[in-house]
Each structure stands twice: as structure tokens, then as C-alpha cells.
Design a protein around this nucleic acid. Sequence first.
DNA 1: TTCCTTATTGATAATAGTTATCAATAAAAT
DNA 2: ATTTTATTGATAACTATTATCAATAAGGAA
Lengths: 124, 124
Amino acid sequence: MKNRNTIQKQVVLQYLVNTNTHPTALELYKMIKKDYPNIGQATVYRNLKILEEQNLINVILTKNNIKRYDGNIMYHTHLICKSCGRLIDIEDCENLNFKALEDRNQIKITDVKIVYEGICNECK
Amino acid sequence: MKNRNTIQKQVVLQYLVNTNTHPTALELYKMIKKDYPNIGQATVYRNLKILEEQNLINVILTKNNIKRYDGNIMYHTHLICKSCGRLIDIEDCENLNFKALEDRNQIKITDVKIVYEGICNECK
DNA sequence: TTCCTTATTGATAATAGTTATCAATAAAAT
DNA sequence: ATTTTATTGATAACTATTATCAATAAGGAA
């Protein structure tokens, strides 16, 4: 009976998948609020947390301790632009060699987050 | 006259360089407090922020929105162990090809943070 | 050294992102 | 239709970090 399929949960996921701006929880709440005025802020935070735990969405951590969310769970990396502050998707050129890292460090790797810092194509 | 060389600033950097546990600001404050009982919590937070801006220390962002600090500014990556929760240094096998990424995405890269998630060698 | 300017400190209040609480609601099994 | 209980929405609480400000001390000038 756990993990009920509420419309709120569906909406949070749907709105996140249909944007590429990597919104914060509050930004996403405001977007949804326009179409679903009754939705609560805590509900958005709660469902983002749940969706993340279920690996249905991605989280990117930023320096000001604000989480940004990404509905695209295909592996990719991000750039934080020091000029405009936006968080932007990067087209990767190669994948990391997990196997070599695991052997060398005697660890098990299940995931990796890569965030570049620099200047985006629009600001350059 | 800006950026005065206070003993508090020296101590914060020194204590951070001399540990490999990637402490939080609060943890570092408690460590320092034992030897310097008069130091203020805000002073530690403040100097960590300044030292980071001067690229004299590194910051690693964690999922619970707590910053962890690293006195080692040589390029290296980290693993967050899902079992013990510790943040551990990784011995890298190869470097990323910044040039290829910059050309492909029409961006300028100045820095990169890589955080692996998995199981550390002690927990494995 | 001594004086002077002002950046920095330490204590505390304020801020802000996120989580916990809880009565009301609604999903889904019976 | 009824029952159970996970989830919602409103709000309070929590917590990492930053801002405020009088007191202090770093570092330059005399």
C-alpha cells in the first residue's frame, strides 16, 4: 500500500521532466502552483525527495546549498556558469572508467556526479 | 589593508590541512575550540568562506546540504560511502579531456568537481 | 615604540532551505 | 460501499549559514 500513485506525485515528476531549467524545489512549486493552486509547498519537497530516492529524478548540489532538480536521468554532466549562474547540461565526450577506479581504490562505485564550473556558451 | 593575517585564519587553514576527514564547518570549529577556546563559531564559518574564495581550500557538497571542507587543493576526486557515510579521497586513474568538452559545448571550463557514490574499501 | 585606522573577531540575531507534525483527505484493497 | 492507512496541505520546527555590531587587534604611519 506504500508509494501510492497520487496526482501530486505524477504532476511533480511530469513538470520536472518537461523542463530543462534544472529548477529548485521552490521554483518547481511555483510553476506547478499556477496550474494546481491547491498544491502545498511541502508536497513538492516531499515528492522530490521520494522521486530522488527512487532514482526517477536527479539532484544537483550547488554552492549556496540549494538543490536543483533534473528530470533527465540519462547519464550526463552539468556546467555552472560563473557569469549567469545557470546550471546547464553538457554533452559529454567520454565516459569514466569505473572498473579501473574500483580496482585501484578497492571500492564499489554505483553513481557519479560531475559538475563543471566555467562560462557557458551564451556568456562566452 | 584587506585580508589581514589573523591567527584565527591561520589556525582554520592549518587545522584543515592537517586532517584528512573532510570535516564540516561545525566539526572543524569543535576541533579548533579544544585548543583555542575563545574562537567563535562565526569566525570559522567566515574564514572557511574566505579561504574557499581564495582557492586555498576545497569544498565538497553533500546531499544533506552540509558543506565538507578539504585542505588538499591538489586535484583529486571523492567517494561518498553509502554504508558508513564518510567522504573519502579517491586515487584517480585518468584526467578528463577539458579541451574536447570545451570545443564540443562551446564553453570555458575553469574547474570540475567529481563525487562518486558507492561503497568504500573498509565497508566492502 | 606609540598612535591611528579599519578589517576582523566573537556573540547573537536573522535568514533560508528543508523536514517534522498532525488533522483532514483520498488511494486502493476488501 | 466500507475500511485502512499513506499522502496531502498548512504550519511549526529545525539547522546550516550569513548578517549585524560593538569590541578588539592587525598593520601602517609618525
